[in-house]
């Protein structure tokens, strides 16, 4: 190829999905609701900080739930488990199921000593904001065990004033 004309022509036509008007309508509504909530929270937290923070913990209710299918249960009832090989990265798929879309949720992954998220060396707690669609949402986590100790990986999903925590037992061989 002699110049950039072919590549700019290809880039010019490079497609992307268009959002429809209904999506924009929903986004506006969510923005005003969530924006108002954050403004209220900012005011409340400024005035009553720690007291309100303690109160929020009492409002952990259902509405979304977490599942991890195809993982066998461990000796601890209700806690699924995986077995990892030392120093070999392995992908664990967490499934977050929700009956409604969750915008602006916070997901926090807590790792036991000796288990790391690939690409995040030395970090035991990683947190970020995300949104979930209604239905099942998959989060692939690429884990690596750097010691034979194992432990529990915990994923906590928080949305507005609700939170749920899911645990996976990791055994290392």
């Amino acid at each position: 190829m002699q110049d950039d004309s072919e590549i700019t022509a290809l880039l010019k036509d490079y497609p992307m999905p268009a959002a429809n008007a209904a999506y924009f309508d929903q986004a506006l509504v969510r923005a005003t609701h969530e924006g108002s909530r954050r403004q209220r929270n900012r005011w409340v937290m400024t005035g009553f900080g720690s007291a309100i923070a303690a109160g929020l913990a009492l409002w952990l209710i259902g509405g979304f739930f977490l599942t991890a299918p195809n993982l066998p249960e461990t000796d601890t009832p209700g806690v699924p488990g995986i077995t990892m090989t030392l120093a070999e990265p392995q992908t664990v798929n967490f499934v977050f199921a929700s009956n409604t879309p969750l915008v602006g949720a916070t997901l926090t992954i807590m790792l036991p000593e000796g288990v790391e998220l690939v690409g995040f060396p030395g970090q035991r707690e990683i947190s970020w904001q995300t949104s979930l669609t209604a239905g099942r949402n998959l989060l692939p986590l690429r884990l690596i065990a750097l010691s034979p100790m194992g432990g529990e990986v915990m994923a906590t999903l928080e949305h507005m004033d609700r939170a749920r925590t899911f645990r996976v037992r990791v055994d290392v061989i």
Binding site: M16, P17, A27, L28, R30, A31, T32, E34, G35, S36, R38, Q39, V103, G104, Q129, T130, S131, T133
Partner: peptide, 26 residues
């Protein structure tokens, strides 16, 4: 469109777009 071009994925583009709107409302 900017959100999509920045992130390259639908879920992340929608997160970014929504967060912008929330910040803008504030």
């Amino acid at each position: 469109r900017l959100a999509w071009r920045l992130t390259g994925r639908k879920a992340e583009a929608e997160d970014l777009f929504q967060e912008l709107l929330i910040r803008a409302y504030g």
